[in-house]
Design a protein around this nucleic acid. Sequence first.
DNA 1: CACTTTGCATTGCACTCGTAATGTAATCGC
DNA 2: GCGATTACATTACGAGTGCAATGCAAAGTG
Lengths: 195, 195
Amino acid sequence: MPRRVDPDERRGHIAAALLRIAAQEGLAAVSLRTVAREAGVTSGAVQHYFPSKHSMLEYAMHAASGRYESRIGKRMAALGERPHPRDAIWVLLSALLPSAEPEAEDARVGLAFQAHAATHDDAAEHLAEGNARLRAHLAGLIRASNPAHPEPAVAATLLLASAEGLAVQMLSSGLQLDDAQTALELQLVVVVDAS
Amino acid sequence: MPRRVDPDERRGHIAAALLRIAAQEGLAAVSLRTVAREAGVTSGAVQHYFPSKHSMLEYAMHAASGRYESRIGKRMAALGERPHPRDAIWVLLSALLPSAEPEAEDARVGLAFQAHAATHDDAAEHLAEGNARLRAHLAGLIRASNPAHPEPAVAATLLLASAEGLAVQMLSSGLQLDDAQTALELQLVVVVDAS
DNA sequence: CACTTTGCATTGCACTCGTAATGTAATCGC
DNA sequence: GCGATTACATTACGAGTGCAATGCAAAGTG
């Protein structure tokens, strides 16, 4: 049976199955066997591509943040050449909210990994990198939108945290999308155009 | 051996052990046996007081939110009679940040339960109730602090979300306490005194 | 003093877990 | 053609899981 195969495609296929399970039933439901079944392969195949469960989780984590960043990229591109920085900020932040199904799944996964990272330092490192990049990007956009802003770095931290906080509350406490979006809009007005 | 015993004290003792484990190693490390060992009892004792693992988790969840609310209560009382509403808001929100060790543990537990609630609807209900109460309380304080505020409800949602978001980032992405507090202060200024 | 209830401790069961080991069939480089 | 590599499939193992069952001693209740 062994045709020549692209191993990264296979790994991606398995990681996608893992992320589906994590999104729907939580990281606790992720095991070699459940992932294998969801991916439609045997657990031997999973073992063939990942030497350990840990490495599989790691790979899936990177895949998830990759998906998120590429979605951002697409939406940014859709804004056209030289968009208003405020629009760019909105795209960045609202992409964190679980709205339609594709991004809702990613948000669920994100929350699961954040909780995981709170007790596993190696995972935390990766999240810290991503957040630092996002914060820096945001700070730049804030500066572009309001050159007189007194503290773009603090504002960026705040924007990022409130978007993530709204997302968490939507997923865990029944906050509605409309309310979250309204709050996020208020946040933009009030922080970006700060005195 | 069986002296007469206060069963709620025993349940509390076991729940506290569960929360310690959840805070240090995550909800995944919580099992009947690990909890029993941490509590210094046998797994039979745990089984005696909780008919199932699910009920134990439920009880611990309520215990955790109880601890949080009582801490808020104490700090509120420490503000004295008729404090400035802004101080009350600060107390409420900064209590969500993992600063010293006792509240850091609770924050870790909170994050773990939020992730759990994202995939388990029964747990989500309880979190939703708590959040709704907090939001209502916050909205009242905002009204008291700035009677001319255009949208106290939206502002309350935003404040709560940003505090929780900052907490999540501290726990999962290495955000420092100082930075989180600075951001939270900016948030208060900018949202409560909104135009 | 008998009896029921309370407060555990111990043991066992069926199951799932991650991982190691082994087998095997197809493909590639030579 | 042939050995090495690739791509799995299958099986087995020891550890851990939630939970049910049983035992049993002390204390309250009549």
